[in-house]
């Protein structure tokens, strides 16, 4: 595949058009690990994925999450988990995972026709 992107936008200046490449030593530093952050926005609600960030350890990840993701009172509880421990389904398996549920319409209340006289069911 050979796609030429010649047109660029704010935040999308192609590398070749920029001059000024200074050669500096690039660090081979291993950075702080990545953490996924889950925030409960108020009591009674689930924790929801808010984003991720870097931290040296779990305690710091919680504090960083507090500073990064709850600056505007977005949360009352924080969960953190190191990103490498998140396991996920593979998109290639989507058909066998999720499509078999599609024809089980009888699982949904709207499948059943009841006379109008039956209320609150």
């Amino acid at each position: 595949m050979n796609i030429q992107i010649r047109k660029f936008y704010y935040g999308d200046i192609p590398e070749e058009t920029g001059g000024n490449s200074t050669s500096i030593k690039t660090t081979q530093e291993s950075g702080w690990p990545l953490w996924e952050i889950f925030i409960r926005s108020k009591q009674g609600l689930d924790h929801k994925h808010a984003g991720s960030l870097h931290a040296a350890d779990a305690q710091m990840a919680i504090e960083n999450a507090r500073d990064v993701y709850t600056r505007r009172q977005e949360g009352v509880s924080i969960w953190v988990v190191e990103s490498k421990y998140i396991h996920a389904t593979n998109p290639d398996d989507a058909e066998m995972f999720y499509e078999p549920a599609a024809d089980k319409v009888y699982r949904h209340p709207t499948f059943y026709d009841l006379p109008d006289e039956v209320k609150h069911m």
Partner: peptide, 24 residues
């Protein structure tokens, strides 16, 4: 940076590219 990291580019790499003048 976190969004870009989901595409397999580490933050260190991106910052290096900024500092070397490669990234704009």
């Amino acid at each position: 940076y976190s969004a870009a990291e989901t595409l397999g580019s580490s933050r260190e790499q991106m910052i290096d590219d900024l500092h070397s003048g490669k990234a704009k």
